[in-house]
Design a protein around this nucleic acid. Sequence first.
DNA 1: TTTCGTGCAAATGGTTTGCAGTGGC
DNA 2: GCCACTGCAAACCATTTGCACGAAA
Lengths: 139, 139
Amino acid sequence: MHPDHIRARCREELRARRMRFTSARLSIMDTLGASTGHLSAAEIHHRISTAGGHLNLSTVYRTLDRLTESGLVHRLPGQAQVTYGLAVEPHHHAVCNRCGTIQEIPAPALADALRATAKAIAFRPESVVVTGLCPACQA
Amino acid sequence: MHPDHIRARCREELRARRMRFTSARLSIMDTLGASTGHLSAAEIHHRISTAGGHLNLSTVYRTLDRLTESGLVHRLPGQAQVTYGLAVEPHHHAVCNRCGTIQEIPAPALADALRATAKAIAFRPESVVVTGLCPACQA
DNA sequence: TTTCGTGCAAATGGTTTGCAGTGGC
DNA sequence: GCCACTGCAAACCATTTGCACGAAA
């Protein structure tokens, strides 16, 4: 996603929720936007540091919490640690039970079935995580 | 699942993998079989203790690892802790992002779409976790 | 100026590990 | 008897929390 677009969206969403637009929030959104996959809190912190930024790890955690609550960021529990990604749109993942690799799933087929199934139990779905074995680990 | 059936299956699977049939493994399998939902390591440990059994918590973890590797048990990463359940068959769950409640999803519709989608990326699916908001938390 | 957000450091708690002893095969 | 498995206690490490300072509105 384009940095300017992220900045704009971030500002807008934060304002809508009466949350302040801070550099911590922006740099985390930027970092997530610059990454193709999901990142852990530690990875985000590391990337910001490497890029010359400065942000305390506990602030990363707190900020991710707020952003998750606000719906800007999406949380994905993993085997050992939680990872985060920009909440772009219904976003489906395949997580390998052995090596932990996360890959995106092209959603269309799944989306319809999901909607129907979720409706049956009054559940409002945000994303689907399929766990199993990735191609490499099937050996 | 019936205790005798569990015991038999446990013995059989363990033997097939040259793993020993121990009381720790059996009591964990029993505990999981007696529960309708998934349980955390701590809950399993607590239930065994309450039932008069004795099993060290670290043994519970190690045993669950081995059983998971063996495919007897199924691991489900949650927000704060990992939970485990008997690996009975493609098993689908809806996990609430807010309260963490796990509910089962009647699978049929989802299962077909899943199979097709997974095949496209050569992923071998074991289970599907839908995250979102449960009915109670949609308020 | 009033809150809300952040840095820092210490605490928390689920999970892992080293080592010595025990039980399955 | 051999070696995988277990108990115990200590270590680990991701995440959380308390408090005081600093910055957004």
